[in-house]
Write a protein that binds this DNA or RNA. Structure first.
Length: 261
DNA sequence: TTGCATGTTCCGGA
DNA sequence: GTCCGGAACATGCA
C-alpha cells in the first residue's frame, strides 16, 4: 500500500462505505489490533457498535465521519491506512486491524503503520475536528484568500497545515504549486492577489480530477507521476526536477517553472 | 544495517 | 501569538 491517503483517497473510502455499508446493520466488530483503537477500549468499541446501523458518511479534510443510529465513528488513515470492502470469506490481510462484519461482506480498516486509527463519539460533532480549517474541496475563494493572505512562512507549509485548510497532504501540495507555477518556499504574505487566486483555481482543478479518480492520478502531465523518479523531469518543460525539504517535508518542484520570488 | 517515508502532535527555540 | 525544525509514533522498504 504505497498510496498515502489525502483528501481524494479519503473521499474514495467514503464512497466505499456509502455504497456498501450505509443503512446496513453491524453484525460484529473484530478488533485484530488494539493499537488503532483510540480513546476507548476495544471491548467498548464493540459494545457500542454491534447491532447499530451505519448512516451516511461524510468527510472533512482527511477525516471520515460515519454516524450510526448510536454513536458516531471517526476514522483517520495516517500515512498507510485504507478502508476496503471485502466479500465474506476472503482471506484476511495481516494489516486488517479492525473488521466490521455486515450481512453480505466486511468493511476492513487496513493499516500498516498504525499512526492514526478509529475513534467513537457519543454525539455527531467531535472535538477531534474542532481545530480543522475548512475542507479544501468546499472552501470558497474569499475564505481561502483571507486565511492565506494573513499567513507568514512558506506557502507550502500553509497549504498542508490542517488548521488553515483541511485535506491537502504533501503530494497534493507539490502538485498544486507546480501547476500554479509557484515556488514552494514562496512567502505566503508576499503573494499578490492574482497569485493567490491562481493557487486557489489550481487547487480546485487538481482536487476535482483527483477525487474523480479516487486518488492523485499518477498519469502523464502530472508531477506526481514522476516525483519518485530521482532523474524525473518537469512534465511541462523537461527541466530536471529539484528536491529539498520545505516545511520539514520532502518537496519536489521545477526550478524553471517555479522560480523563487 | 541504516536511513527514509507522502500524517499528526508536541516541544523548545527564534 | 507565529513560525520552524526536530522528535516521536510503528512499520516496511531500498
Amino acid at each position: 500500500m504505497t498510496v498515502v491517503p489525502e483528501l481524494p483517497d479519503v473521499e474514495g473510502f467514503r464512497r466505499v462505505l456509502a455504497e456498501h455499508a450505509s443503512g446496513r446493520r453491524i453484525r460484529d466488530v473484530e478488533v485484530r489490533d488494539a493499537g488503532v483503537v483510540r480513546a476507548i477500549t476495544p471491548e467498548a468499541l464493540r459494545e457500542q457498535l454491534v447491532g447499530r446501523r451505519f448512516g451516511a458518511p461524510w468527510r472533512h479534510g482527511k477525516w471520515l465521519v460515519t454516524p450510526t443510529d448510536g454513536p458516531t465513528l471517526l476514522l483517520h488513515f495516517g500515512m498507510t491506512g485504507a478502508l476496503l470492502w471485502c466479500p465474506k470469506g476472503e482471506a484476511r490481510h495481516r494489516h486488517d486491524r479492525v473488521v466490521f462484519v455486515l450481512d453480505d461482506g466486511e468493511l476492513r480498516y487496513r493499516d500498516t503503520r498504525k499512526l492514526q486509527g478509529l475513534w467513537v463519539s457519543p454525539g455527531a460533532a467531535d472535538d477531534l475536528l474542532a481545530d480543522l480549517g475548512p475542507d479544501a474541496l468546499a472552501v470558497r475563494w474569499p475564505h481561502f484568500d483571507r486565511r492565506l493572505s494573513g499567513r507568514r512562512g512558506a506557502v507550502k507549509a500553509a497549504l498542508v497545515d490542517q488548521r488553515l485548510l483541511a485535506g491537502l497532504g504533501n503530494l497534493l501540495a507539490d502538485e498544486i504549486l507546480w501547476r500554479a507555477r509557484i515556488h514552494p518556499r514562496r512567502q505566503a504574505r508576499d503573494m499578490p492577489v492574482e497569485e493567490r487566486r491562481r493557487l486557489y483555481e489550481e487547487m480546485r482543478r487538481v482536487l476535482r480530477a483527483a477525487v474523480r479518480a479516487g486518488r492523485i492520478p499518477a498519469r502523464p502531465g502530472w508531477l506526481t507521476g514522476v516525483r519518485d523518479d530521482t532523474a524525473g523531469r518537469c512534465p511541462r518543460c523537461g527541466t530536471p526536477l529539484s528536491r529539498g525539504r520545505v516545511g520539514g517535508r520532502g518537496t519536489v518542484w521545477c526550478p524553471r517553472c517555479q522560480q523563487p520570488d
